[in-house]
Structure formats: C-alpha cells, structure tokens
Simulated assay, not measured.
Amino acid sequence: MILLIVALCAVTIVPRIIPAFIVDWLVLPEWCVAYLNYIPYAALGVLIFPGILSAVEHPIHGIFGGLFAIALALLRVPLFFIVLGSIVFIYIIML
C-alpha cells in the first residue's frame, strides 16, 4: 500500500514540477504571454458566475449584485467593501 502511495505521488508530482524548471528557459511570444495572463480571470469568472445565479432566490438579484460588484471594482473600491457592499445591495433589493 505504501509503495502504491509513493508511486502515485511520483506520477502526479512530476508533471507539476517539471514545468516550473522549464518555464525559465522558454521564451514565449508577447501575444502568448498576453493570452496566458487572462487565464486566472477566466477561471475566476467560471467559478463565481454559477454562484451568483444560485445564491439567491431569484437569479436576477444575483446578476444585479454582480453588476454592482463590477461597478465598485471599476471605481477601485477595496475588496472588503466590494463584498460587503454587494451583500448589502442584494439585501436591499430583496426587501
């Protein structure tokens, strides 16, 4: 059983560690780097959007809350106040 655990650990850790060493030698074109910079935002959007639609009774309230959070983010409001403001905003529109 221990041998199996060690083997599985080696199999999963090798593909995760090797790119960390290779990326220093790799020179990517500027368009590729720009493309890769958008991956965290896309992944975050995919994780957050379903929660926006299902967190409240009516999905439209969640959409309004998300739009309010985007507006606050564009105004460079600190993250804590974006979250707090969105919660208060949804609470008010649900009354």
Rank of each mutant, 00 (worst) to 15 (best):
V23A: 13
V46R: 08
L44K: 09
V56G: 05
I17K: 00
Y35H: 06
S54Q: 13
A73Y: 01
I92H: 07
V46A: 14
I18H: 02
H58S: 06
M1L: 10
V11Q: 00
A71Y: 00
I48L: 15
V14C: 09
S54W: 01
G65E: 02
I70V: 14
L95G: 12
V11K: 02
H58E: 12
W25G: 11
I17S: 07
L95R: 06
T12Y: 04
L72T: 03
A55P: 03
P78M: 01
I39L: 15
L67Q: 04
I13L: 15
G51W: 08
A55T: 12
L67H: 02
V6A: 08
S86A: 15
S54V: 05
Y38E: 06
P40E: 11
L26D: 06
I87E: 05
W31M: 09
P19R: 01
H58Q: 12
S86V: 01
A71V: 10
G65I: 00
A20Y: 06
G66I: 03
A42L: 13
V11G: 08
Y38C: 07
D24S: 12
P29R: 10
L44D: 03
L36H: 05
I2N: 15
W25E: 14
P19K: 00
I39C: 04
I92L: 13
V56F: 13
I52N: 00
I87D: 04
D24R: 13
E30Y: 08
C32D: 01
L36E: 09
M1Q: 12
L67M: 13
W25R: 15
A43R: 06
I92N: 05
V56N: 11
F80V: 14
L79V: 09
E57Q: 14
T12W: 06
G51E: 11
G66T: 08
H61S: 09
I39G: 01
I39S: 07
P40H: 12
C9I: 11
V46K: 02
V77L: 09
I82H: 03
F68W: 12
L4Y: 10
L44N: 07
M94L: 07
P15G: 08
A34H: 01
F21K: 11
G62R: 00
Y41V: 07
I22T: 09
A34P: 01
M1N: 14
A7I: 03
N37S: 11
A71P: 00
I17G: 05
L26S: 03
A7T: 05
L72V: 03
L28G: 06
I93M: 10
P40L: 10
F81L: 15
Y41P: 04
P50R: 13
V11D: 01
V14D: 02
L28Y: 10
V33Y: 06
A71K: 01
I63C: 04
F49H: 06
I52F: 15
